[in-house]
Design a protein around this nucleic acid. Structure first.
Lengths: 139, 139
DNA sequence: CATATTTCCTTCCATTCTACTCGGGAATGC
DNA sequence: GCATTCCCGAGTAGAATGGAAGGAAATATG
Protein backbone atom coordinates (compact mmCIF):
# COMPACT_ATOMS: atom_id res chain seq x y z
CA UNK A 1 0.00 0.00 0.00
CA UNK A 2 2.75 2.39 -0.96
CA UNK A 3 3.39 5.13 -3.47
CA UNK A 4 6.96 4.68 -4.71
CA UNK A 5 9.59 7.33 -5.30
CA UNK A 6 8.38 7.57 -8.87
CA UNK A 7 5.16 9.20 -7.78
CA UNK A 8 6.75 11.07 -4.90
CA UNK A 9 9.65 12.59 -6.80
CA UNK A 10 7.46 13.11 -9.83
CA UNK A 11 5.07 15.15 -7.74
CA UNK A 12 8.00 17.11 -6.35
CA UNK A 13 9.05 17.97 -9.89
CA UNK A 14 5.55 19.10 -10.75
CA UNK A 15 5.24 21.24 -7.63
CA UNK A 16 8.51 22.97 -8.46
CA UNK A 17 7.32 23.61 -11.99
CA UNK A 18 4.05 24.93 -10.59
CA UNK A 19 5.86 27.33 -8.26
CA UNK A 20 7.79 28.72 -11.21
CA UNK A 21 4.98 28.57 -13.71
CA UNK A 22 5.23 31.32 -16.33
CA UNK A 23 8.91 31.90 -15.75
CA UNK A 24 10.16 29.92 -18.73
CA UNK A 25 11.77 26.49 -18.80
CA UNK A 26 13.29 25.17 -15.57
CA UNK A 27 16.22 22.77 -15.84
CA UNK A 28 16.03 19.46 -14.00
CA UNK A 29 19.46 20.15 -12.56
CA UNK A 30 17.98 22.93 -10.45
CA UNK A 31 15.05 20.86 -9.22
CA UNK A 32 17.36 17.98 -8.38
CA UNK A 33 19.74 20.24 -6.48
CA UNK A 34 16.99 22.10 -4.59
CA UNK A 35 15.42 18.84 -3.44
CA UNK A 36 18.61 16.86 -3.02
CA UNK A 37 17.61 14.24 -5.58
CA UNK A 38 19.45 12.46 -8.37
CA UNK A 39 19.17 14.37 -11.61
CA UNK A 40 19.65 11.22 -13.69
CA UNK A 41 16.79 9.57 -11.87
CA UNK A 42 14.49 12.56 -12.23
CA UNK A 43 15.17 12.45 -15.96
CA UNK A 44 13.52 9.06 -16.10
CA UNK A 45 10.48 10.33 -14.26
CA UNK A 46 9.95 13.47 -16.27
CA UNK A 47 9.96 11.49 -19.50
CA UNK A 48 6.51 9.92 -19.02
CA UNK A 49 5.25 13.25 -17.73
CA UNK A 50 6.26 14.80 -21.02
CA UNK A 51 4.88 11.90 -23.09
CA UNK A 52 1.55 12.25 -21.34
CA UNK A 53 1.43 15.94 -22.18
CA UNK A 54 1.55 17.28 -18.62
CA UNK A 55 4.85 19.06 -19.19
CA UNK A 56 6.60 20.59 -22.17
CA UNK A 57 10.35 20.63 -22.70
CA UNK A 58 12.85 22.97 -24.30
CA UNK A 59 16.16 21.45 -25.31
CA UNK A 60 19.56 23.03 -25.27
CA UNK A 61 21.20 25.70 -23.16
CA UNK A 62 18.72 27.65 -21.04
CA UNK A 63 16.23 24.88 -21.74
CA UNK A 64 14.29 22.86 -19.26
CA UNK A 65 10.76 21.83 -18.45
CA UNK A 66 7.53 23.69 -17.83
CA UNK A 67 3.93 22.79 -17.16
CA UNK A 68 1.84 22.57 -20.31
CA UNK A 69 -1.12 24.23 -18.58
CA UNK A 70 -1.78 26.35 -15.46
CA UNK A 71 -1.23 24.60 -12.10
CA UNK A 72 -4.89 24.75 -11.15
CA UNK A 73 -5.74 22.61 -14.19
CA UNK A 74 -3.42 19.74 -13.18
CA UNK A 75 -4.46 17.51 -10.30
CA UNK A 76 -2.17 15.35 -8.22
CA UNK A 77 -4.23 12.44 -9.57
CA UNK A 78 -3.04 13.29 -13.08
CA UNK A 79 0.56 13.09 -11.94
CA UNK A 80 0.21 9.93 -9.87
CA UNK A 81 -1.68 8.13 -12.62
CA UNK A 82 1.06 8.80 -15.14
CA UNK A 83 3.84 7.61 -12.87
CA UNK A 84 2.22 4.88 -10.82
CA UNK A 85 -0.47 3.62 -13.15
CA UNK A 86 -4.20 3.52 -12.52
CA UNK A 87 -5.28 4.47 -9.02
CA UNK A 88 -6.39 1.18 -7.52
CA UNK A 89 -5.42 -0.66 -4.36
CA UNK A 90 -5.36 -4.11 -6.00
CA UNK A 91 -4.67 -5.52 -9.42
CA UNK A 92 -7.58 -7.21 -11.19
CA UNK A 93 -10.21 -5.80 -8.89
CA UNK A 94 -12.91 -7.29 -11.14
CA UNK A 95 -11.79 -10.81 -10.24
CA UNK A 96 -12.16 -10.29 -6.51
CA UNK A 97 -15.07 -11.74 -4.58
CA UNK A 98 -17.89 -9.19 -4.18
CA UNK A 99 -17.22 -8.19 -0.54
CA UNK A 100 -13.54 -7.52 -1.16
CA UNK A 101 -14.32 -5.91 -4.48
CA UNK A 102 -16.59 -3.41 -2.78
CA UNK A 103 -13.94 -2.68 -0.17
CA UNK A 104 -11.21 -2.08 -2.75
CA UNK A 105 -13.54 0.14 -4.76
CA UNK A 106 -14.38 2.17 -1.66
CA UNK A 107 -10.68 2.63 -0.95
CA UNK A 108 -9.98 3.49 -4.55
CA UNK A 109 -12.73 6.11 -4.57
CA UNK A 110 -11.53 7.63 -1.30
CA UNK A 111 -7.98 7.97 -2.58
CA UNK A 112 -9.16 9.21 -5.95
CA UNK A 113 -11.25 11.85 -4.25
CA UNK A 114 -8.28 13.27 -2.34
CA UNK A 115 -6.01 13.23 -5.38
CA UNK A 116 -8.62 14.68 -7.70
CA UNK A 117 -9.38 17.59 -5.41
CA UNK A 118 -5.76 18.55 -4.82
CA UNK A 119 -4.30 20.57 -7.70
CA UNK A 120 -0.69 21.54 -8.26
CA UNK A 121 -1.75 25.07 -7.45
CA UNK A 122 -2.95 23.92 -4.04
CA UNK A 123 0.33 22.13 -3.44
CA UNK A 124 2.52 24.97 -4.71
CA UNK A 125 0.69 27.53 -2.59
CA UNK A 126 0.48 25.33 0.48
CA UNK A 127 0.85 27.12 3.80
CA UNK A 128 1.08 25.01 6.92
CA UNK A 129 -1.75 25.45 9.35
CA UNK A 130 -2.55 24.26 12.82
CA UNK A 131 -3.65 20.69 12.97
CA UNK A 132 -4.24 18.30 15.79
CA UNK A 133 -2.63 15.31 14.17
CA UNK A 134 0.51 16.92 12.88
CA UNK A 135 2.52 14.49 14.95
CA UNK A 136 0.55 11.37 14.11
CA UNK A 137 2.39 9.69 11.31
CA UNK A 138 1.67 6.08 12.17
CA UNK A 139 -1.87 4.86 12.54
CA UNK B 1 -0.07 2.00 -4.34
CA UNK B 2 -1.02 -1.63 -4.06
CA UNK B 3 -2.16 -4.06 -1.42
CA UNK B 4 -0.29 -7.32 -2.01
CA UNK B 5 -1.62 -10.85 -1.87
CA UNK B 6 -0.65 -10.95 1.79
CA UNK B 7 -3.38 -8.52 2.70
CA UNK B 8 -5.79 -9.82 0.07
CA UNK B 9 -5.53 -13.50 0.91
CA UNK B 10 -5.29 -12.71 4.60
CA UNK B 11 -8.57 -10.85 4.41
CA UNK B 12 -10.07 -13.78 2.53
CA UNK B 13 -9.06 -16.08 5.37
CA UNK B 14 -10.59 -13.76 7.93
CA UNK B 15 -13.85 -13.44 6.00
CA UNK B 16 -14.14 -17.23 5.81
CA UNK B 17 -13.52 -17.48 9.54
CA UNK B 18 -16.11 -14.78 10.11
CA UNK B 19 -18.69 -16.64 8.04
CA UNK B 20 -18.16 -19.74 10.14
CA UNK B 21 -17.70 -17.98 13.46
CA UNK B 22 -18.92 -20.07 16.38
CA UNK B 23 -18.70 -23.34 14.49
CA UNK B 24 -15.40 -24.50 15.94
CA UNK B 25 -11.97 -24.50 14.32
CA UNK B 26 -11.77 -24.34 10.52
CA UNK B 27 -8.79 -25.98 8.82
CA UNK B 28 -6.75 -23.92 6.37
CA UNK B 29 -7.05 -26.76 3.89
CA UNK B 30 -10.73 -26.01 3.49
CA UNK B 31 -10.24 -22.26 3.08
CA UNK B 32 -7.49 -22.84 0.55
CA UNK B 33 -9.62 -25.28 -1.45
CA UNK B 34 -12.74 -23.09 -1.36
CA UNK B 35 -10.82 -20.08 -2.60
CA UNK B 36 -8.44 -21.91 -4.90
CA UNK B 37 -5.35 -20.72 -3.05
CA UNK B 38 -2.12 -22.40 -1.98
CA UNK B 39 -2.50 -23.89 1.49
CA UNK B 40 1.26 -23.62 2.14
CA UNK B 41 1.14 -19.92 1.36
CA UNK B 42 -1.91 -19.27 3.52
CA UNK B 43 -0.05 -20.92 6.38
CA UNK B 44 2.52 -18.17 6.20
CA UNK B 45 -0.15 -15.50 6.29
CA UNK B 46 -2.17 -16.89 9.15
CA UNK B 47 0.89 -17.05 11.35
CA UNK B 48 1.14 -13.29 11.97
CA UNK B 49 -2.64 -13.15 12.36
CA UNK B 50 -2.31 -15.63 15.19
CA UNK B 51 0.69 -13.86 16.72
CA UNK B 52 -1.22 -10.61 16.72
CA UNK B 53 -4.11 -12.25 18.57
CA UNK B 54 -6.73 -11.85 15.87
CA UNK B 55 -7.17 -15.60 15.45
CA UNK B 56 -6.78 -18.61 17.71
CA UNK B 57 -5.61 -22.05 16.59
CA UNK B 58 -6.31 -25.64 17.58
CA UNK B 59 -3.70 -28.18 16.58
CA UNK B 60 -4.20 -31.76 15.56
CA UNK B 61 -6.98 -33.63 13.84
CA UNK B 62 -10.21 -31.66 13.63
CA UNK B 63 -8.17 -28.58 14.49
CA UNK B 64 -7.96 -25.35 12.60
CA UNK B 65 -8.32 -21.63 13.11
CA UNK B 66 -11.05 -19.41 14.49
CA UNK B 67 -11.50 -15.72 15.19
CA UNK B 68 -10.52 -14.74 18.71
CA UNK B 69 -13.49 -12.36 18.96
CA UNK B 70 -16.80 -11.73 17.19
CA UNK B 71 -16.56 -10.53 13.57
CA UNK B 72 -18.07 -7.13 14.35
CA UNK B 73 -15.16 -6.41 16.69
CA UNK B 74 -12.50 -6.96 14.02
CA UNK B 75 -12.05 -4.31 11.35
CA UNK B 76 -10.46 -4.81 7.97
CA UNK B 77 -7.92 -2.22 9.14
CA UNK B 78 -6.85 -4.63 11.90
CA UNK B 79 -6.19 -7.33 9.32
CA UNK B 80 -4.42 -5.13 6.78
CA UNK B 81 -2.21 -3.56 9.42
CA UNK B 82 -1.00 -6.95 10.62
CA UNK B 83 -0.19 -8.21 7.14
CA UNK B 84 0.88 -5.08 5.30
CA UNK B 85 2.23 -2.92 8.07
CA UNK B 86 1.06 0.55 9.09
CA UNK B 87 -1.54 2.11 6.83
CA UNK B 88 0.37 4.87 5.08
CA UNK B 89 0.88 5.72 1.43
CA UNK B 90 4.56 6.60 1.81
CA UNK B 91 7.42 5.61 4.05
CA UNK B 92 8.84 8.30 6.32
CA UNK B 93 5.95 10.68 5.84
CA UNK B 94 7.47 12.97 8.47
CA UNK B 95 10.43 13.70 6.19
CA UNK B 96 8.29 14.89 3.31
CA UNK B 97 7.93 18.56 2.47
CA UNK B 98 4.81 20.08 4.06
CA UNK B 99 2.57 20.12 0.94
CA UNK B 100 3.24 16.49 0.11
CA UNK B 101 3.07 15.54 3.77
CA UNK B 102 -0.43 16.97 4.01
CA UNK B 103 -1.47 15.13 0.84
CA UNK B 104 -0.16 11.78 2.09
CA UNK B 105 -1.83 12.29 5.43
CA UNK B 106 -5.14 13.09 3.72
CA UNK B 107 -4.86 9.90 1.67
CA UNK B 108 -3.85 7.90 4.71
CA UNK B 109 -6.85 9.19 6.66
CA UNK B 110 -9.23 8.48 3.79
CA UNK B 111 -8.01 4.90 3.47
CA UNK B 112 -7.97 4.42 7.21
CA UNK B 113 -11.55 5.64 7.41
CA UNK B 114 -12.79 3.05 4.93
CA UNK B 115 -10.85 0.22 6.54
CA UNK B 116 -11.81 1.21 10.07
CA UNK B 117 -15.50 1.33 9.27
CA UNK B 118 -15.63 -2.02 7.50
CA UNK B 119 -15.76 -4.93 9.93
CA UNK B 120 -15.40 -8.61 9.17
CA UNK B 121 -19.09 -8.92 9.95
CA UNK B 122 -19.86 -6.41 7.19
CA UNK B 123 -17.70 -8.34 4.76
CA UNK B 124 -19.04 -11.75 5.74
CA UNK B 125 -22.65 -10.60 5.44
CA UNK B 126 -22.10 -8.63 2.24
CA UNK B 127 -24.95 -8.70 -0.25
CA UNK B 128 -24.40 -7.12 -3.62
CA UNK B 129 -26.55 -4.13 -4.39
CA UNK B 130 -27.23 -1.95 -7.37
CA UNK B 131 -24.51 0.52 -8.05
CA UNK B 132 -23.75 2.84 -10.89
CA UNK B 133 -20.07 2.18 -11.03
CA UNK B 134 -20.07 -1.57 -10.82
CA UNK B 135 -18.32 -1.70 -14.16
CA UNK B 136 -15.77 1.01 -13.49
CA UNK B 137 -12.64 -0.72 -12.38
CA UNK B 138 -10.06 1.63 -13.83
CA UNK B 139 -10.11 5.30 -13.01
C1' DC C 1 -0.89 -47.57 20.87
C1' DA C 2 -1.19 -46.39 15.82
C1' DT C 3 -2.58 -43.38 12.43
C1' DA C 4 -4.40 -39.52 10.14
C1' DT C 5 -4.90 -34.81 10.51
C1' DT C 6 -3.54 -30.29 11.30
C1' DT C 7 -0.82 -26.58 13.11
C1' DC C 8 3.91 -24.82 13.55
C1' DC C 9 8.51 -23.41 12.03
C1' DT C 10 12.41 -22.72 9.06
C1' DT C 11 14.61 -22.57 4.81
C1' DC C 12 14.89 -22.04 0.02
C1' DC C 13 13.73 -20.30 -4.64
C1' DA C 14 12.42 -17.81 -9.04
C1' DT C 15 10.69 -13.72 -10.61
C1' DT C 16 9.67 -9.01 -10.46
C1' DC C 17 10.12 -4.32 -8.76
C1' DT C 18 12.79 -0.43 -7.02
C1' DA C 19 15.89 3.05 -7.27
C1' DC C 20 19.00 4.18 -9.10
C1' DT C 21 23.86 4.73 -12.40
C1' DC C 22 26.08 5.16 -16.86
C1' DG C 23 27.07 6.35 -21.63
C1' DG C 24 26.15 8.64 -25.43
C1' DG C 25 23.32 11.34 -28.91
C1' DA C 26 20.76 15.45 -30.35
C1' DA C 27 19.19 20.20 -29.86
C1' DT C 28 19.96 25.03 -28.63
C1' DG C 29 21.87 29.60 -26.89
C1' DC C 30 25.87 32.28 -26.67
C1' DG D 1 32.60 25.97 -31.26
C1' DC D 2 31.26 25.03 -26.82
C1' DA D 3 28.65 24.54 -22.74
C1' DT D 4 24.23 23.31 -21.55
C1' DT D 5 20.24 20.65 -21.47
C1' DC D 6 17.00 17.32 -23.01
C1' DC D 7 16.56 12.50 -24.80
C1' DC D 8 17.09 7.48 -24.81
C1' DG D 9 18.47 2.81 -23.80
C1' DA D 10 20.98 -0.42 -21.00
C1' DG D 11 22.58 -2.24 -16.87
C1' DT D 12 22.52 -3.37 -11.82
C1' DA D 13 22.40 -4.31 -6.65
C1' DG D 14 19.15 -5.08 -3.40
C1' DA D 15 14.57 -5.83 -1.73
C1' DA D 16 9.97 -7.61 -2.09
C1' DT D 17 6.62 -10.97 -3.91
C1' DG D 18 4.58 -15.31 -4.15
C1' DG D 19 5.15 -19.10 -3.36
C1' DA D 20 7.30 -24.55 -2.54
C1' DA D 21 9.34 -28.01 0.61
C1' DG D 22 10.45 -30.53 4.68
C1' DG D 23 9.91 -31.88 8.99
C1' DA D 24 8.43 -31.50 14.05
C1' DA D 25 4.76 -31.34 17.40
C1' DA D 26 0.00 -31.77 18.93
C1' DT D 27 -4.50 -34.02 18.94
C1' DA D 28 -8.85 -36.90 17.74
C1' DT D 29 -10.19 -41.28 16.63
C1' DG D 30 -10.04 -46.31 16.31
Amino acid sequence: MKISTKGRYGLTIMIELAKQYGQGPIPLRQIAADNNLSEAYLEQLVSPLRNSGLVKSVRGAYGGYMLSKPPHLISSADVIRVLEGPIQPVEGIENEAPPQRQLWMDIRDAVKNVLDTTSLEDLAAYKEQDSDDGYMFYI
